[in-house]
Computed example of a mutant assay.
Amino acid sequence: MDRSAQNSGTTEVRDAHRFDDAILDQWLKNHVADYAGPLTVRQFKGGQSNPTYRLDTPGRSYVMRRKPPGKLLPGAHAIDREYRVIDALGRQDFPVARALGLCEDPSIIGTAFYVMEMVEGRIFWEAHFPEVPAAERAAYFDAMNATIAALHRIDPEAAGLGDYGKPGNYFERQIGRWSKQYLGDAEAGRVAPMDRLVEWLPANIPHEDDEEVRVIHGDFRCDNMIFHATEPKVLAVLDWELSTLGHPLSDFAYHLMMYRMPVGFLAGLEGRDLAALGIPSEADYVAAYCARTGRTGIPDLDFYIAFNMFRLAAIVHGIKGRLVRGTAASAHAAAMAEGLEPLAELAWRQAERAAAR
């Protein structure tokens, strides 16, 4: 699957996601400083959950994210939370697109939405950064590592996000949440390794004497970052739909999954010659994050990765359910749904690896 070709750029707005451009144009005039039409709307190809649009005017470009139309699962597609977190983190000098306006009135375009600045740069859809010379790839990995470490050093209270999620018992609550979502979406069907993980994960949560609480992104990977056009620098981290307060090691382990995903599946690196590609090893990448966050190591890393693969499989299971119900936001939802069972099997192998230690 060529993820870059499938997800890069824009297309005509899909029929299921159309709205009255003139009404949006008027809202922008009333709520976004210095906005001036006329307005041209295109839809980004990428995005599995919240439809995302490029809004162009003669003088400036914007990005709009909205809730998808149709029947939605409770608590999903929390556009207002996305807007709140990017607004708060931007004030902490963390690299995000500048928040410009939130509309929770569904009468405007049919669902709630928000508008942010358009950040120009490069998005890399494959974790081995094929567009970058091998001699420069380590610098791009270091930029990602530095960015997630910087996020995990932010004090949620100081950022005005102290109530952005529930503190404590993060893994217990998350395993319960995603298990409930998986088990509750009957239209998407059941998967045997997922059923095993629903039982194994809550019984094997590492003991945390003093659980850390930080703002976590929830989907931190290379294709959710905009890099500088020519430099190994992250200009903006995108797609905060899954962000919350939680344990930073969960967030980092999700990012680290790229090392254990097979080539051809969600930008996996497993099976590639990392040294020849100029990419740091998993051990070196973990050590760099630990040095930046004051850790001596991550003893329960296999559990954290098993949990994250389970969580990702539950998200893909939800995509399959939306595909069945006809509300999937991406044209490539079917391809994602086909990866559900292999991903669930891979998650279970991580659990077995954790149990063997």
Rank of each mutant, 00 (worst) to 15 (best):
C103H: 04
P106T: 09
G101C: 02
E117M: 06
E120Q: 11
E120P: 04
I123A: 05
T111V: 07
C103W: 07
I123V: 15
G90A: 12
P95R: 08
L89D: 06
D105T: 07
E120G: 10
Q92D: 12
A112R: 13
Y114C: 10
G101T: 06
A97P: 02
V96Q: 07
D93E: 15
F113E: 07
A112H: 10
A97D: 02
D93W: 06
D93P: 00
E117L: 05
I123P: 10
G121S: 07
M118H: 15
F94M: 07
V115K: 04
E117I: 00
I123M: 10
V119P: 01
L102P: 04
A97R: 07
P106H: 12
L102N: 09
D93L: 14
V119C: 03
Y114T: 13
M116P: 00
I109P: 03
L102F: 00
V96A: 05
I108C: 02
M116F: 08
E120R: 11
I108A: 05
C103Y: 06
P106A: 12
G121L: 05
C103P: 03
Y114M: 14
R122L: 14
G121F: 03
G90N: 13
E117V: 04
P106K: 14
P106W: 14
P106V: 10
G110D: 08
L100K: 09
P95I: 04
R91T: 08
R91F: 00
C103Q: 01
L89S: 11
R98A: 14
C103L: 09
D93G: 10
C103A: 13
F94R: 12
D105P: 07
T111P: 01
A97C: 02
Q92S: 12
L89H: 13
L102K: 01
E104Y: 00
M116G: 01
D105I: 05
S107H: 13
L102Y: 08
A99W: 11
R91W: 00
G90V: 13
V96W: 08
G101R: 09
R91V: 01
P95C: 08
I109M: 03
A112T: 06
M116C: 11
D105L: 14
A99H: 10
F113R: 00
S107F: 06
V96S: 03
E104H: 00
M116S: 05
L100D: 06
G101M: 08
R98I: 01
F113L: 02
L102S: 04
C103V: 00
I109D: 09
L100T: 01
Y114K: 12
T111L: 00
G101N: 04
R91C: 00
G101H: 04
G101W: 06
V115H: 03
P95H: 07
A112Y: 08
Y114Q: 10
C103D: 11
V96M: 01
G101I: 09
M118Y: 15
I109C: 03
V115C: 07
A112W: 02
L89Y: 02
P95M: 04
I108Q: 03
M118N: 15
V115R: 01
F113T: 07
V96E: 04
L89F: 12
V119I: 05
C103F: 07
D93T: 15
D93I: 10
